[in-house]
């Protein structure tokens, strides 16, 4: 080990941040976990509102309402990830060879990312209105005016277990450009020599992508998956802006937490819910962080 005088200043320089992260991230998470295990009793009716301990978790996880919210989250996340990956990769393939006005196309595809979810939600609430035919507005109206009324949809208001797929549309709109940027940079990171070598070997375009380029993009794809996936799991703003604070149809754990905390005035249930969201995100992210950490140790 090196001498303490060499490394101590480094530790001291990072110390303020360690304290801040320690308090604001780990300390507060600890407090939330603590709150989530409390036993509470309504002081007017004397009813037990939260049994306390791990039973708070089994009660919430066992409730139909929470399972419905988790299901919505699953549908949203899967469609969101698949959608952004498809569009992101497609756009990156279209742009990666360098096209005329590439900068303009790239800016257009990327711009939705600059818009806040809350602002985008305002437009998409209107675009995804379920009203039809002569009452139609938004996309349904566009379909009627374009002469394809058959494409009209109830969107996220549909009576279907898959209705949250429609809520992923605005999310895909916002983040596909970001995934495109990731893939684009990935493509640009592959040297021209490798493409040339593949051509010399007589590979077709398809084979070039399939066997030479795509395998090298898998770290990029993994990053994109982690980032888009964790954004989906904590998504609140967009759903709040589109469906309002009280929609069962569009309920996910993050919006339910708001309802638990304020209209229902039950911080213990809200904390339990928040910890579950945290665990779900951790299941996705921690293996990734450990993997990254190990890779770095190995690569020095």
């Amino acid at each position: 080990m090196r001498k303490i005088r060499t490394w101590l200043p480094g530790l001291l320089l990072v110390l303020p941040s360690i304290i801040l992260i320690g308090v604001f991230v780990y300390g507060l998470i600890g407090q939330t976990i603590n709150t989530s295990l409390l036993r509470t009793q309504d002081f007017v009716t004397d009813k037990i509102t939260n049994p306390g301990g791990i039973a708070n978790y089994t009660a919430l996880l066992g409730s139909d309402r929470y399972q419905h919210a988790l299901w919505n989250l699953l549908v949203l996340t899967v469609v969101f990830i698949v959608g952004t990956m498809i569009f992101g990769l497609l756009w990156a393939i279209l742009l990666e060879r360098g096209v005329f006005a590439e900068g303009i196309f790239r800016s257009i595809y990327l711009f939705p990312m600059a818009v806040s979810f809350i602002a985008a939600g305002v437009v998409w609430r209107w675009l995804l209105s379920p009203a039809r035919d002569d009452q139609a507005v938004g996309l349904n109206q566009l379909f009627v005016q374009l002469g394809v009324p058959g494409l009209q949809s109830d969107w996220w208001s549909a009576n279907s277990r898959m209705s949250m797929a429609a809520m992923a549309i605005p999310a895909i709109w916002q983040l596909s450009g970001y995934v495109m940027a990731l893939f684009l940079a990935g493509f640009r990171g592959i040297s021209a020599d490798q493409r040339e070598a593949a051509r010399v070997d007589g590979a077709t375009e398809f084979q070039l992508y399939r066997h030479v380029l795509f395998p090298q993009l898998s770290p990029v794809a993994l990053s994109a998956l982690i980032i888009v996936g964790h954004m989906s799991m904590k998504m609140f703003d967009l759903i709040y802006a589109i469906a309002g604070p009280n929609s069962y149809q569009a309920e996910v754990p993050a919006t339910l937490m708001w309802i638990q905390l304020f209209p229902q005035g039950d911080p213990v249930a809200a904390a339990t819910n928040a910890v579950i969201i945290l665990v779900i995100v951790a299941i996705l992210v921690v293996p990734y962080l450990v993997h990254t950490h190990r890779t770095e140790q190995r690569d020095g």
Partner: peptide, 13 residues
Amino acid sequence: QAWLSDITTAVSK
């Protein structure tokens, strides 16, 4: 409000 919130959720469902 808590009761109303539960009723509203039930109706929305």
